[in-house]
Design a protein around this nucleic acid. Structure first.
Lengths: 265, 265
DNA sequence: CGCCGCCAAAATGTGCACATTCATGCCAGT
DNA sequence: ACTGGCATGAATGTGCACATTTTGGCGGCG
């Protein structure tokens, strides 16, 4: 376990930390640190399960430990990292089931959004959707996975933003940002997270003012993602076996093999 | 302004603080303090705009200031109180528009919930809804407003919990708890926040497996609430005028009269 | 007479040092 | 040789003291 933690930590140091920038006397505002860590967690630069030690981060960012502490606790309150009392913070290691719940939640709520969207539909908005689809296509065409993931999320944000309710936008934005974490864990690298065509079909349904179909399509869209997650999980179970038994060798024996990730919170 | 704050603060002291309990050597766990403040904010014991001074709360709860500080920042992250850097924490003073947004969000999202609920509908669940309606009726009959508000929120929680997605439940629970704050500010005391009959109509639609009607009813239900809020606002505008000009007398001139509450965040 | 700028008090923010808790490795006992 | 308890060390949690910012009041100046 020692080895595992050290390896992961060292990886973090070189992937995200940019210590030289941090050690410049730049005061590094709270928000900047918050965003840096949140982004690193979300885009997968930090491996799931990585420990986020306070003094180490403090050294990396060149600020006091209390500062990091505050940020870490805030991230914990936002459910972006896991904090265990007296045991510190870790990059969350979502269960397949948790991931599924996030996607299901998104699916359920987006149905409501689409229903409400019926009133806000106008040509200008449809044109914006078309433009977005074009961008998605372009990114997919040149194989830019990072852009694809981002744009793919942006599509759903575009939908909810059209309602013009900041509160609503914030809720779905949170949901989306949390599901982004999981993409990096469970999604195979060669698949785009949302099929562009499925987005296109939703737009067509909206253009035809057929909200019912749009909802159906959106639902199936999310179900596809969920389903693919489960398949992927089964596919690389062999690889995962190693992760299953690693904790048992070093730490206290895990409570049960089957619940290896289920008893975190 | 001084007078206003002092009055509000004094009121807080006697309404919620229970200083004698706090000064008992009871260590008062973080969660307990968090809940105490959150509840006080939510149920209206604390007047909107009341300042939550750290050292004062520390004295009241009999803990160190840092403890309060942590809790306050957490409450701020949860959007349950407003925190302005270097200016401390205050009980939020929601704009009518913000309240409307919360209700609109709830309305939009609950439509999705009802759609998803179609799959989870069984007789046991309908029976539970009936039982809940009976409770609501009972509370309304004996004029127990506090119980009514609580049960009324519980109805919507019952709906979302039926889907069995904890993540979804958490999101709507948050939304509901935030709208509870506003009830105390804008709702007249003699009206129940959710008409029991409207809840009953939704249940009937569900029983008939007519999800479309249930969504319609739910939508109108929330629209009623929103509408009533606006009427109430217009009704006591005279009282509010005083609040409009008070900040200008004491503090820096407000940026604009119309945005008196809109520029808080 | 009114306005601008300064001063002091109070409240928040921050860093430091100490207390507490948890994990790991060692040693003794069976 | 293995299990159990114990000690040590590292990491987190907490309180205290100081720095910074804001606010309300006051005096001088235009």
């Amino acid at each position: 376990m020692n080895v595992h933690i050290l390896a992961a930590t060292r990886r973090r140091d070189c992937v995200r930390a940019r210590p030289q920038r941090a050690s410049k006397a730049d005061p590094q505002t709270d928000a900047a640190i918050h965003d840096a860590i949140a982004r690193a967690v979300m885009d997968g630069s930090l491996r799931a399960g990585t420990k986020l030690a306070e003094h180490r981060l403090a050294a990396i960012f060149g600020v006091s430990r209390e500062r990091i502490r505050k940020v870490l606790h805030r991230l914990g309150a936002e459910r972006r990292i896991d904090i265990i009392p007296n045991r510190g913070a870790r990059v969350p290691q979502p269960t397949v089931d948790e991931v599924r719940q996030i996607y299901e939640a998104h699916r359920v709520l987006e149905a409501g959004v689409l229903l409400a969207l019926a009133d806000a539909l106008d040509d200008a908005f449809l044109a914006r959707l078309d433009a977005h689809l074009a961008e998605e296509h372009a990114a997919a065409a040149r194989g830019d996975r990072s852009a694809s993931v981002k744009l793919s999320g942006g599509f759903h944000l575009l939908l909810v933003d059209a309602i013009g309710n900041p509160e609503l936008s914030r809720i779905l934005r949170d949901l989306l940002s949390r599901s982004s974490v999981m993409v990096s864990v469970y999604e195979p690298a060669n698949q785009s997270i949302c099929a562009v065509d499925e987005h296109g079909a939703i737009v067509e349904a909206l253009r035809a003012r057929d909200v019912g179909r749009a909802i159906d399509l959106s639902g199936h869209h999310f179900l596809h993602v969920e389903q693919r997650l489960r398949l992927d999980y089964a596919a690389d179970a062999a690889t995962d076996l190693e992760a299953v038994f690693r904790p048992r060798l070093a730490g206290k024996p895990a409570r049960a093999t089957a619940s290896k990730r289920g008893d975190r919170r």
